[in-house]
Design a protein around this nucleic acid. Structure first.
Lengths: 339, 339
DNA sequence: CTGAAAGCGCTTACAG
DNA sequence: CTGAAAGCGCTTACAG
């Protein structure tokens, strides 16, 4: 019942615990024969280092933290987090690093959670998601010198390493596609305006539209919920210069838009093209199925883990965007109706 | 930069570290005045116990583990896990217990992950989900004496505490409702047959149907994917005695069924009633919106945490089902067509 | 009520 | 190449 320790291995091998430690960690200081013997005994009795002991002497927790700040009922709506976590964790576990997950209600609670898990030395580094343009977590991790990775894009206000998908390129490609279909009046239903990536996407959208010589397009900001997505759609479809295409910042709002269009007698895709900002099963299950911007979220999580591990080792990782977003065309987009 | 330790507090207060420890842990052995002073200093310098040190001396990791074994691409499909985790974590954090999340590919990997995190003393207990009827994780945790909670139902093969929702009652109520609407031919599209709760639900379904004096109903087993859900629906709708109502074991398959029905010219709900086994935003976004069995998943997570904490303290928690499942009626169910 | 000391299971300079 | 020892930051019997 009692779990084996290196003392036991040392006793069996007839050496000191120090020697055992060296052997087990592949450091010089023990002969090849002794090392072999020690490894064999360790394996035989199923020894595993106690993380507590390693942490205490080595001053590393062998864990990284992910603090998600979201009202819980919006969680699970999007497939993003579980897949991201799966990728993250898959990569971390290869290094025997655990993922500490915390789900808190708001930004304030997130700050507290970060302070606490760092003070308790529970984690060696942090993954920060859902970044705001002016995010107090960044000065916090800088002050505390917590190794971290920012998920969402490089920023000028910090040297903290970041991972990101190239949202600008994705949005631009999407606009290009709609314009190529013949659309001229394209609107955007954006997510939370305080989030950094929302602004990046909105700016990219505006630039792409203007780049095509089109007028300043309408943009409605929302909280990503289907309720606000539906409301925004109603507003846009009630305009005199009703758009012939709408790009949504996620999948849920785009799905809600299909229902609003139906309710208002607007045919999708004949009268209105709808594009979702995230791909998911939802996009495939609604009718018409939604054209969407898809990315490999699990790979994104894996990449995030690698960058964080590098940051924890002190090297400042080079930053480049994660593999490009693909436009998956389904039934919700088509050329606009003849004018 | 250096984080404060109890040695520092002891020095400032002019007492031994032992006294500081007693004071901080609210144990007898220090005078009220000394205690007050120590707490004040600790607070002032922002002291927080090092979990590593506490773990090493107290032999508790102050963490619990959740190992999810699923192919990653089916994760995030269902809203279950993120909400469940949110509830779980919310309750754990109140006790300063961290949640270690691991996502692995299959059952074998889950077994390995459990062995490892326990051997490393990373966790004090485990949450086990997606239980199979003959689940090797159960003998494993019994052999290793790992405190755990089984999410999914009480079982005769173990004394390990469990939490569950009353699936039998929920399925029975759903059948009663459909029968009250006038349905006589009701089919079920079940999830993975190896999962314990699948069998509970199928048995409840059969019993309810037979209880109404109806014939042995058709049941198709699937892997929960929309593909198999669609296929099962096609099969059922191709029968000579086509069912007038189908109950699905989750939301994704029910949504897929709507598309199959449309493709086959079967009107929902006029010709076919569709019921989803889990409620989610998907159910509200498809058309017609899906009638579903809804439960408070976050509360379920909180309850799970409480039961696990009790188990970790050695008390064997009483077991009762979590708050009942509600039938949320939307547009996908109606009386059957006249025969 | 309080202090000095041992111990948790490792790692790591420091002597031999 | 190897051993003995100190130390990581706590907790907890054990003496006073």
């Amino acid at each position: 019942m009692k779990r084996p320790t290196i003392a036991e291995i040392a006793a069996r091998a007839g050496v000191s615990t120090g020697a055992v430690s060296y052997a087990l960690n592949g450091r010089p200081g023990v002969s090849a024969e002794t090392r072999r013997q020690i490894l064999e005994i360790a394996d035989e009795i199923g020894w595993r280092p106690s993380v507590a002991a390693r942490s205490l002497s080595g001053s590393r927790a062998h864990s990284v933290g992910l603090v998600i700040a979201r009202p819980a009922d919006t969680l699970g709506v999007e497939p993003f987090f579980m897949r991201f976590i799966a990728g993250l964790e898959g990569e971390l576990s290869r290094q025997s690093i655990a993922l500490l997950l915390q789900v808190v209600d708001d930004h304030r609670a997130a700050i507290e959670a970060i302070r606490l898990c760092w003070a308790e030395r529970r984690v060696d580094g942090l993954v920060l998601t859902d970044l705001y343009s002016d995010d107090t977590r960044i000065p916090l991790i800088e002050e505390l010198r917590i190794p971290a990775v920012l998920v969402g894009g490089p920023r000028s206000d910090t040297r903290t390493p970041a991972v990101w998908t190239d949202d600008r390129a994705a949005v631009t490609a999407a606009v290009d596609y709609l314009v190529a279909l013949g659309h001229r009046r394209i609107a955007r239903v954006a997510g939370l305006p305080a989030l950094e990536h929302t602004q990046v996407r909105v700016a990219a959208f505006r630039d792409a539209m203007l780049g095509h010589g089109l007028a300043e397009p309408p943009v409605v900001e929302t909280d990503y919920s289907w309720e606000e997505g539906a409301e925004a759609t109603r507003t846009l479809l009630s305009r005199r210069d009703r758009p012939t295409a709408i790009m949504f910042d996620n999948d849920v709002m785009a799905a809600a838009a299909l229902n609003v269009a139906q309710e208002m007698g607007v045919a999708v895709p004949d009268d209105l093209s709808v594009m979702a900002g995230d791909d998911s099963q939802l996009c495939m299950l609604v009718r018409p199925a939604l054209t969407a911007l898809a990315r490999d979220i699990q790979a994104y999580g894996r990449h995030t883990a690698r960058v964080l591990l590098q940051a924890m080792e002190g090297s400042s990782p080079g930053s480049e965007p994660e593999s490009a977003t693909r436009l998956v065309v389904r039934g919700s987009t088509a050329p606009p109706p003849p004018a």
